[in-house]
Design a protein around this nucleic acid. Structure first.
Lengths: 196, 196
DNA sequence: CGTCTATTTGAATGTACTCAAAAGCGGTGG
DNA sequence: CCACCGCTTTTGAGTACATTCAAATAGACG
Protein backbone atom coordinates (compact mmCIF):
# COMPACT_ATOMS: atom_id res chain seq x y z
CA UNK A 1 0.00 0.00 0.00
CA UNK A 2 1.27 3.43 -0.90
CA UNK A 3 1.65 6.07 1.72
CA UNK A 4 -0.44 9.17 1.77
CA UNK A 5 1.24 12.47 0.98
CA UNK A 6 1.53 13.89 4.53
CA UNK A 7 2.84 10.61 5.88
CA UNK A 8 5.49 10.32 3.21
CA UNK A 9 6.49 13.90 3.95
CA UNK A 10 7.06 13.31 7.65
CA UNK A 11 8.87 10.02 6.97
CA UNK A 12 11.23 11.86 4.66
CA UNK A 13 11.74 14.34 7.48
CA UNK A 14 12.61 11.49 9.84
CA UNK A 15 14.86 9.76 7.34
CA UNK A 16 16.98 12.84 6.91
CA UNK A 17 18.13 12.15 10.47
CA UNK A 18 17.76 8.39 11.07
CA UNK A 19 17.07 5.32 8.97
CA UNK A 20 13.85 3.45 9.50
CA UNK A 21 12.49 0.06 8.59
CA UNK A 22 9.11 -0.21 6.93
CA UNK A 23 7.68 -1.50 10.20
CA UNK A 24 9.02 1.38 12.25
CA UNK A 25 7.74 3.91 9.74
CA UNK A 26 4.30 2.35 9.61
CA UNK A 27 4.04 2.14 13.35
CA UNK A 28 5.08 5.74 13.73
CA UNK A 29 2.47 6.85 11.20
CA UNK A 30 -0.20 4.87 13.01
CA UNK A 31 0.35 7.08 16.06
CA UNK A 32 -0.15 10.33 14.18
CA UNK A 33 -3.36 12.27 14.04
CA UNK A 34 -3.89 14.53 11.07
CA UNK A 35 -5.41 17.84 12.11
CA UNK A 36 -6.53 20.62 9.82
CA UNK A 37 -6.89 24.06 11.33
CA UNK A 38 -8.10 27.39 10.03
CA UNK A 39 -6.25 30.66 10.14
CA UNK A 40 -6.62 32.32 13.56
CA UNK A 41 -7.46 28.99 15.19
CA UNK A 42 -5.74 28.14 18.48
CA UNK A 43 -4.16 24.73 18.93
CA UNK A 44 -3.08 25.52 22.50
CA UNK A 45 -4.40 28.06 24.96
CA UNK A 46 -2.75 29.44 28.08
CA UNK A 47 -3.89 27.27 31.01
CA UNK A 48 -4.47 24.14 28.99
CA UNK A 49 -2.07 21.21 28.86
CA UNK A 50 -0.09 20.89 25.64
CA UNK A 51 -1.17 17.40 24.57
CA UNK A 52 0.73 17.14 21.28
CA UNK A 53 3.94 17.63 19.47
CA UNK A 54 2.71 19.07 16.18
CA UNK A 55 4.56 18.62 12.92
CA UNK A 56 3.67 21.20 10.28
CA UNK A 57 2.84 19.57 6.97
CA UNK A 58 1.38 22.77 5.57
CA UNK A 59 0.85 26.20 7.05
CA UNK A 60 2.34 28.56 9.56
CA UNK A 61 1.97 28.72 13.35
CA UNK A 62 3.20 30.85 16.19
CA UNK A 63 3.59 30.32 19.94
CA UNK A 64 3.39 33.31 22.25
CA UNK A 65 3.15 34.37 25.85
CA UNK A 66 0.73 37.06 26.99
CA UNK A 67 2.05 39.01 29.98
CA UNK A 68 -0.02 40.53 32.79
CA UNK A 69 -0.25 43.80 30.81
CA UNK A 70 -1.85 41.86 27.95
CA UNK A 71 1.20 42.23 25.71
CA UNK A 72 1.97 39.40 23.34
CA UNK A 73 5.56 37.98 23.15
CA UNK A 74 6.39 35.55 20.35
CA UNK A 75 8.37 32.57 21.61
CA UNK A 76 8.53 30.50 18.40
CA UNK A 77 7.08 30.21 14.95
CA UNK A 78 6.84 27.12 12.77
CA UNK A 79 6.47 26.51 9.06
CA UNK A 80 6.45 23.41 6.84
CA UNK A 81 8.78 20.63 8.06
CA UNK A 82 9.04 22.11 11.58
CA UNK A 83 7.67 20.91 14.89
CA UNK A 84 5.89 23.10 17.40
CA UNK A 85 4.70 22.59 20.98
CA UNK A 86 5.19 24.09 24.40
CA UNK A 87 8.02 21.88 25.64
CA UNK A 88 7.52 22.70 29.31
CA UNK A 89 3.82 21.84 29.24
CA UNK A 90 4.18 18.86 26.93
CA UNK A 91 6.96 17.16 28.89
CA UNK A 92 5.35 17.68 32.29
CA UNK A 93 1.76 17.42 30.99
CA UNK A 94 0.98 20.49 33.09
CA UNK A 95 -0.89 23.72 32.29
CA UNK A 96 0.85 25.88 29.74
CA UNK A 97 1.78 29.54 30.03
CA UNK A 98 1.66 30.02 26.29
CA UNK A 99 -0.66 29.92 23.30
CA UNK A 100 -0.16 28.41 19.88
CA UNK A 101 -2.13 29.78 16.97
CA UNK A 102 -2.31 29.11 13.25
CA UNK A 103 -1.73 32.17 11.07
CA UNK A 104 -2.59 30.31 7.89
CA UNK A 105 -4.89 27.37 7.19
CA UNK A 106 -2.62 24.52 8.27
CA UNK A 107 -2.30 20.76 8.24
CA UNK A 108 -0.61 19.23 11.26
CA UNK A 109 0.51 15.74 12.15
CA UNK A 110 0.17 15.36 15.89
CA UNK A 111 1.48 12.82 18.34
CA UNK A 112 0.54 12.78 22.00
CA UNK A 113 2.81 12.23 24.98
CA UNK A 114 1.63 8.72 25.75
CA UNK A 115 2.07 7.51 22.20
CA UNK A 116 5.49 9.07 22.04
CA UNK A 117 6.59 7.45 25.30
CA UNK A 118 5.39 4.08 24.06
CA UNK A 119 7.13 4.66 20.76
CA UNK A 120 10.44 5.30 22.52
CA UNK A 121 10.14 1.99 24.34
CA UNK A 122 9.05 -0.01 21.34
CA UNK A 123 11.55 1.45 18.86
CA UNK A 124 14.50 3.19 20.52
CA UNK A 125 15.56 4.60 17.16
CA UNK A 126 12.99 7.32 17.81
CA UNK A 127 14.91 8.32 20.93
CA UNK A 128 17.76 8.93 18.54
CA UNK A 129 15.59 10.98 16.23
CA UNK A 130 14.37 13.22 19.02
CA UNK A 131 17.82 13.56 20.47
CA UNK A 132 19.13 14.78 17.13
CA UNK A 133 16.15 17.07 16.65
CA UNK A 134 16.44 18.63 20.10
CA UNK A 135 20.20 19.02 19.86
CA UNK A 136 19.85 20.92 16.60
CA UNK A 137 17.14 23.01 18.17
CA UNK A 138 19.50 23.90 21.02
CA UNK A 139 22.04 25.19 18.52
CA UNK A 140 19.37 27.47 17.04
CA UNK A 141 18.30 28.64 20.48
CA UNK A 142 21.90 29.36 21.47
CA UNK A 143 22.14 31.67 18.47
CA UNK A 144 18.90 33.39 19.35
CA UNK A 145 20.03 33.94 22.94
CA UNK A 146 23.35 35.32 21.76
CA UNK A 147 21.55 37.67 19.40
CA UNK A 148 19.23 38.78 22.18
CA UNK A 149 22.06 39.70 24.53
CA UNK A 150 24.67 40.92 22.03
CA UNK A 151 22.76 42.74 19.29
CA UNK A 152 20.58 45.84 19.02
CA UNK A 153 16.98 45.62 17.83
CA UNK A 154 17.99 46.70 14.33
CA UNK A 155 20.71 44.06 14.16
CA UNK A 156 18.40 41.31 15.39
CA UNK A 157 15.89 42.28 12.69
CA UNK A 158 18.63 42.17 10.07
CA UNK A 159 19.76 38.73 11.26
CA UNK A 160 16.19 37.40 11.24
CA UNK A 161 15.33 38.40 7.70
CA UNK A 162 18.67 37.11 6.45
CA UNK A 163 18.05 33.76 8.13
CA UNK A 164 14.36 33.57 7.11
CA UNK A 165 13.88 35.78 4.05
CA UNK A 166 10.26 34.69 3.61
CA UNK A 167 9.21 35.50 7.15
CA UNK A 168 7.91 38.96 6.24
CA UNK A 169 5.40 37.41 3.86
CA UNK A 170 4.02 35.05 6.46
CA UNK A 171 4.14 36.94 9.75
CA UNK A 172 2.70 40.37 10.53
CA UNK A 173 5.20 43.04 11.44
CA UNK A 174 3.89 43.37 14.95
CA UNK A 175 4.54 39.67 15.48
CA UNK A 176 8.03 39.93 14.06
CA UNK A 177 8.58 42.78 16.51
CA UNK A 178 7.30 40.65 19.38
CA UNK A 179 9.64 37.83 18.30
CA UNK A 180 12.60 40.22 18.31
CA UNK A 181 11.64 41.74 21.63
CA UNK A 182 10.97 45.25 20.35
CA UNK A 183 7.83 47.37 19.93
CA UNK A 184 6.01 47.43 16.58
CA UNK A 185 6.52 51.20 16.41
CA UNK A 186 10.24 50.78 16.76
CA UNK A 187 10.37 48.06 14.11
CA UNK A 188 8.60 50.39 11.72
CA UNK A 189 11.32 53.00 12.33
CA UNK A 190 14.07 50.42 11.79
CA UNK A 191 12.55 49.45 8.45
CA UNK A 192 12.28 53.05 7.33
CA UNK A 193 15.98 53.67 7.98
CA UNK A 194 17.01 50.45 6.23
CA UNK A 195 15.38 51.31 2.92
CA UNK A 196 17.55 54.38 2.52
CA UNK B 1 35.51 -3.01 42.75
CA UNK B 2 34.14 0.20 44.16
CA UNK B 3 33.69 3.21 42.01
CA UNK B 4 35.67 6.37 42.46
CA UNK B 5 33.88 9.43 43.77
CA UNK B 6 33.54 11.41 40.50
CA UNK B 7 32.32 8.33 38.64
CA UNK B 8 29.69 7.54 41.23
CA UNK B 9 28.57 11.16 41.07
CA UNK B 10 28.02 11.16 37.32
CA UNK B 11 26.32 7.75 37.45
CA UNK B 12 23.90 9.12 40.02
CA UNK B 13 23.31 12.01 37.65
CA UNK B 14 22.52 9.55 34.85
CA UNK B 15 20.34 7.37 37.02
CA UNK B 16 18.11 10.27 37.95
CA UNK B 17 16.98 10.15 34.31
CA UNK B 18 17.48 6.55 33.11
CA UNK B 19 18.26 3.19 34.67
CA UNK B 20 21.54 1.54 33.85
CA UNK B 21 23.01 -1.90 34.21
CA UNK B 22 26.41 -2.33 35.82
CA UNK B 23 27.87 -3.03 32.38
CA UNK B 24 26.42 0.10 30.82
CA UNK B 25 27.63 2.23 33.73
CA UNK B 26 31.12 0.78 33.61
CA UNK B 27 31.37 1.19 29.88
CA UNK B 28 30.22 4.78 30.08
CA UNK B 29 32.79 5.54 32.77
CA UNK B 30 35.52 3.97 30.68
CA UNK B 31 34.88 6.64 28.02
CA UNK B 32 35.29 9.55 30.42
CA UNK B 33 38.45 11.52 30.89
CA UNK B 34 38.91 13.29 34.18
CA UNK B 35 40.30 16.77 33.71
CA UNK B 36 41.34 19.18 36.43
CA UNK B 37 41.59 22.81 35.50
CA UNK B 38 42.67 25.93 37.35
CA UNK B 39 40.70 29.12 37.78
CA UNK B 40 41.01 31.31 34.67
CA UNK B 41 41.96 28.33 32.52
CA UNK B 42 40.29 27.99 29.12
CA UNK B 43 38.82 24.66 28.11
CA UNK B 44 37.70 25.99 24.72
CA UNK B 45 38.93 28.95 22.70
CA UNK B 46 37.23 30.78 19.86
CA UNK B 47 38.43 29.17 16.61
CA UNK B 48 39.13 25.76 18.10
CA UNK B 49 36.81 22.77 17.73
CA UNK B 50 34.86 21.85 20.85
CA UNK B 51 36.06 18.27 21.33
CA UNK B 52 34.18 17.40 24.52
CA UNK B 53 30.96 17.48 26.38
CA UNK B 54 32.15 18.39 29.88
CA UNK B 55 30.31 17.35 33.00
CA UNK B 56 31.13 19.48 36.03
CA UNK B 57 32.02 17.35 39.03
CA UNK B 58 33.39 20.33 40.92
CA UNK B 59 33.80 23.96 40.06
CA UNK B 60 32.21 26.66 37.95
CA UNK B 61 32.57 27.45 34.25
CA UNK B 62 31.28 29.99 31.80
CA UNK B 63 30.88 30.08 28.01
CA UNK B 64 30.98 33.42 26.25
CA UNK B 65 31.18 35.08 22.87
CA UNK B 66 33.52 37.99 22.21
CA UNK B 67 32.13 40.36 19.58
CA UNK B 68 34.16 42.39 17.08
CA UNK B 69 34.28 45.28 19.55
CA UNK B 70 35.95 42.96 22.06
CA UNK B 71 32.89 42.86 24.31
CA UNK B 72 32.21 39.66 26.18
CA UNK B 73 28.69 38.11 26.11
CA UNK B 74 27.94 35.22 28.47
CA UNK B 75 26.03 32.43 26.74
CA UNK B 76 25.95 29.84 29.56
CA UNK B 77 27.42 29.03 32.91
CA UNK B 78 27.75 25.63 34.55
CA UNK B 79 28.16 24.43 38.11
CA UNK B 80 28.29 21.00 39.76
CA UNK B 81 26.04 18.40 38.10
CA UNK B 82 25.75 20.41 34.87
CA UNK B 83 27.13 19.84 31.41
CA UNK B 84 28.84 22.46 29.32
CA UNK B 85 30.04 22.60 25.71
CA UNK B 86 29.49 24.62 22.58
CA UNK B 87 26.72 22.57 20.99
CA UNK B 88 27.19 23.99 17.51
CA UNK B 89 30.91 23.25 17.44
CA UNK B 90 30.66 19.91 19.23
CA UNK B 91 27.94 18.49 17.00
CA UNK B 92 29.51 19.61 13.74
CA UNK B 93 33.11 19.26 14.99
CA UNK B 94 33.78 22.65 13.43
CA UNK B 95 35.54 25.77 14.77
CA UNK B 96 33.75 27.43 17.63
CA UNK B 97 32.68 31.05 17.94
CA UNK B 98 32.82 30.89 21.71
CA UNK B 99 35.14 30.38 24.65
CA UNK B 100 34.70 28.31 27.77
CA UNK B 101 36.63 29.25 30.87
CA UNK B 102 36.84 27.96 34.43
CA UNK B 103 36.16 30.59 37.09
CA UNK B 104 37.08 28.26 39.92
CA UNK B 105 39.47 25.32 40.12
CA UNK B 106 37.30 22.62 38.58
CA UNK B 107 37.12 18.91 37.99
CA UNK B 108 35.47 17.85 34.75
CA UNK B 109 34.46 14.52 33.30
CA UNK B 110 34.81 14.78 29.55
CA UNK B 111 33.57 12.64 26.71
CA UNK B 112 34.52 13.23 23.10
CA UNK B 113 32.27 13.09 20.06
CA UNK B 114 33.54 9.82 18.72
CA UNK B 115 33.15 8.01 22.04
CA UNK B 116 29.68 9.43 22.45
CA UNK B 117 28.63 8.33 18.96
CA UNK B 118 29.94 4.84 19.62
CA UNK B 119 28.20 4.81 22.97
CA UNK B 120 24.87 5.62 21.33
CA UNK B 121 25.25 2.67 18.99
CA UNK B 122 26.42 0.23 21.63
CA UNK B 123 23.88 1.19 24.31
CA UNK B 124 20.87 3.09 22.95
CA UNK B 125 19.77 3.90 26.48
CA UNK B 126 22.26 6.77 26.30
CA UNK B 127 20.30 8.20 23.40
CA UNK B 128 17.44 8.32 25.82
CA UNK B 129 19.54 10.03 28.45
CA UNK B 130 20.68 12.73 26.07
CA UNK B 131 17.22 13.20 24.68
CA UNK B 132 15.88 13.81 28.17
CA UNK B 133 18.78 16.09 29.04
CA UNK B 134 18.43 18.19 25.89
CA UNK B 135 14.65 18.40 26.19
CA UNK B 136 14.96 19.75 29.72
CA UNK B 137 17.58 22.16 28.52
CA UNK B 138 15.20 23.41 25.85
CA UNK B 139 12.63 24.20 28.53
CA UNK B 140 15.22 26.30 30.37
CA UNK B 141 16.25 28.05 27.18
CA UNK B 142 12.63 28.81 26.30
CA UNK B 143 12.32 30.59 29.64
CA UNK B 144 15.49 32.53 29.07
CA UNK B 145 14.34 33.63 25.62
CA UNK B 146 10.98 34.69 27.00
CA UNK B 147 12.72 36.67 29.73
CA UNK B 148 14.99 38.30 27.17
CA UNK B 149 12.11 39.51 25.00
CA UNK B 150 9.49 40.20 27.67
CA UNK B 151 11.35 41.62 30.69
CA UNK B 152 13.42 44.71 31.47
CA UNK B 153 17.02 44.41 32.62
CA UNK B 154 15.98 44.85 36.25
CA UNK B 155 13.34 42.13 35.96
CA UNK B 156 15.74 39.71 34.29
CA UNK B 157 18.21 40.28 37.12
CA UNK B 158 15.49 39.65 39.68
CA UNK B 159 14.47 36.42 37.92
CA UNK B 160 18.08 35.22 37.72
CA UNK B 161 18.92 35.63 41.39
CA UNK B 162 15.62 34.04 42.38
CA UNK B 163 16.34 31.05 40.16
CA UNK B 164 20.03 30.79 41.16
CA UNK B 165 20.44 32.47 44.55
CA UNK B 166 24.10 31.44 44.82
CA UNK B 167 25.11 32.87 41.46
CA UNK B 168 26.30 36.16 42.94
CA UNK B 169 28.86 34.31 45.06
CA UNK B 170 30.32 32.47 42.10
CA UNK B 171 30.12 34.86 39.18
CA UNK B 172 31.45 38.42 38.98
CA UNK B 173 28.87 41.13 38.53
CA UNK B 174 30.18 42.09 35.12
CA UNK B 175 29.64 38.52 33.98
CA UNK B 176 26.15 38.44 35.41
CA UNK B 177 25.51 41.64 33.47
CA UNK B 178 26.85 40.06 30.29
CA UNK B 179 24.61 37.03 30.86
CA UNK B 180 21.58 39.29 31.25
CA UNK B 181 22.48 41.39 28.23
CA UNK B 182 23.02 44.65 30.11
CA UNK B 183 26.08 46.77 30.91
CA UNK B 184 27.91 46.33 34.22
CA UNK B 185 27.28 49.98 35.05
CA UNK B 186 23.56 49.52 34.61
CA UNK B 187 23.54 46.38 36.75
CA UNK B 188 25.24 48.32 39.51
CA UNK B 189 22.44 50.91 39.34
CA UNK B 190 19.77 48.22 39.42
CA UNK B 191 21.33 46.73 42.55
CA UNK B 192 21.49 50.10 44.26
CA UNK B 193 17.79 50.71 43.71
CA UNK B 194 16.86 47.21 44.88
CA UNK B 195 18.45 47.55 48.30
CA UNK B 196 16.23 50.47 49.18
C1' DC C 1 51.68 47.32 51.03
C1' DG C 2 51.05 48.12 46.31
C1' DT C 3 49.05 46.74 42.04
C1' DC C 4 45.45 45.24 39.34
C1' DT C 5 40.82 44.69 38.40
C1' DA C 6 35.95 45.19 39.65
C1' DT C 7 32.38 48.11 41.18
C1' DT C 8 30.25 52.44 42.02
C1' DT C 9 29.00 57.12 41.02
C1' DG C 10 27.75 61.00 38.16
C1' DA C 11 26.81 63.22 33.83
C1' DA C 12 25.80 63.26 29.08
C1' DT C 13 24.08 60.60 25.21
C1' DG C 14 21.58 57.36 22.62
C1' DT C 15 18.35 53.69 22.08
C1' DA C 16 13.91 52.10 22.41
C1' DC C 17 9.22 52.91 24.40
C1' DT C 18 4.58 55.09 25.06
C1' DC C 19 0.91 57.78 23.50
C1' DA C 20 -1.82 59.76 20.04
C1' DA C 21 -3.20 60.50 15.50
C1' DA C 22 -3.01 59.68 10.56
C1' DA C 23 -2.51 56.73 6.73
C1' DG C 24 -2.74 52.22 4.57
C1' DC C 25 -4.71 47.72 3.71
C1' DG C 26 -7.77 43.76 3.61
C1' DG C 27 -11.98 41.69 4.11
C1' DT C 28 -17.05 41.92 4.06
C1' DG C 29 -21.46 43.12 2.73
C1' DG C 30 -24.58 45.93 0.25
C1' DC D 1 -17.57 46.75 -7.54
C1' DC D 2 -17.17 49.92 -4.30
C1' DA D 3 -17.66 51.69 0.37
C1' DC D 4 -17.07 50.93 4.93
C1' DC D 5 -15.09 48.87 9.03
C1' DG D 6 -11.49 47.13 11.72
C1' DC D 7 -6.89 46.30 12.24
C1' DT D 8 -1.95 47.17 11.08
C1' DT D 9 1.59 50.26 10.03
C1' DT D 10 3.51 54.77 9.93
C1' DT D 11 4.64 59.25 11.77
C1' DG D 12 5.75 62.58 15.28
C1' DA D 13 6.63 64.09 19.90
C1' DG D 14 7.84 63.40 24.52
C1' DT D 15 9.71 60.14 27.99
C1' DA D 16 12.08 56.36 30.13
C1' DC D 17 15.44 52.95 29.96
C1' DA D 18 20.05 51.72 29.27
C1' DT D 19 24.65 53.02 27.46
C1' DT D 20 29.17 55.35 27.26
C1' DC D 21 32.82 57.84 29.28
C1' DA D 22 35.47 59.28 33.04
C1' DA D 23 36.81 59.34 37.66
C1' DA D 24 36.58 57.70 42.39
C1' DT D 25 36.27 53.87 45.54
C1' DA D 26 36.53 49.25 46.97
C1' DG D 27 38.34 44.48 46.91
C1' DA D 28 41.44 40.70 45.83
C1' DC D 29 45.87 38.81 45.41
C1' DG D 30 50.69 38.35 45.54
Amino acid sequence: MNRKEPEQFILDHLQKRISLTREEGDYFCSLLQVRKVLARQYILQQGDVCRYESFVYKGFLRSFYVDDMGVDHTLHFAMEDWWIADSASFLGQEPSMINIIAHEPSVLLQINKQSLDELYLKFPVFERFWRILTQNFIVAQDKRILNAIALSGAERYQALIERYPTIENRLAQKHIASYLGISPVFLSQIRKKRHK
